[in-house]
Design a binder for these strands. Structure first.
Lengths: 122, 122
DNA sequence: CTCCTTAGTTACATTCATGTGCCTACGTCA
DNA sequence: TGACGTAGGCACATGAATGTAACTAAGGAG
């Protein structure tokens, strides 16, 4: 997300605010992985084969700026950086977990839709 | 969202699936309003001053296709169309409500950050 | 002395999402 | 007879989001 430059849906809608933080193509998944454990940069790349180096950096920076994750740089060589949820980021866990559960259910729902085909309606 | 044409983050991540449905600039807010009550098309436009006619149509169509909302057209004149959550869409309520609550808390958090400024870190 | 690794950065290109403006059908109201 | 309101559709334009490729620093391994 983070595309609010084009204007907000309604003024001050908290749902919109939340989606600003965790929406977008990658952030949800990033947070999902960080929920389990602290991760290094390339470790996350391996967890998310689809993401490019650049995008991962950008998304992590935004999450950091929003105070959701913490970035710990170790001045060693080769470089070592660890990402983890902040205490505030931990408060996102219920949302992410709900989203995971719902996502599972949705996939199940999709299969059913293929059977229903016609008599849908609620 | 619905920008997965460029590929998925990880294969089969339920969080990603969920964000496909409710992510994007408008869908969260649309669902937020439909959680409270059935709405007509122009009624929603009034609730979300920022959205254009075209985008509202597009988003509603996608939500309908995903089986989350129901579109009831009354063959009267002037046209009347009512949008409501399907039973399946109702299952999204916990997520939307969590997002609303978190959004509220986040705004509160931001104010604090302005004070902390330096000694942040978790 | 060359290559490997990590965690980036930068410039450039493209694709997707979203926005704008104009058009319609029909019945009602003035 | 003409304007109004609803729920859109369509063509076109723009900008945001994302992708690709090449580059870097520093120490260790060979």
């Amino acid at each position: 997300m983070r595309n609010r430059k084009a204007g907000y849906a309604c003024k001050h809608c908290p749902v919109e605010t939340t989606l600003d933080i965790i929406g977008g193509k990658w952030k949800g998944v990033i947070l999902y992985h960080l929920m389990n454990k602290t991760c290094r940069f390339n470790e996350m790349r391996r967890l998310m084969p689809g993401i490019s180096q650049r995008m991962l950096t950008l998304q992590l920076r935004e999450l950091e700026k929003d105070g959701v994750i913490h970035r710990e740089v170790y001045p060693v060589v080769p470089p070592k950086t660890e990402y983890s949820l902040t205490a505030f980021g931990e408060t996102l866990k219920p949302i992410i977990q709900e989203m995971k559960r719902w996502g599972d259910r949705y996939e199940h729902h999709q299969e059913q839709q293929l059977e229903d085909v016609d008599q849908n309606k609620a």
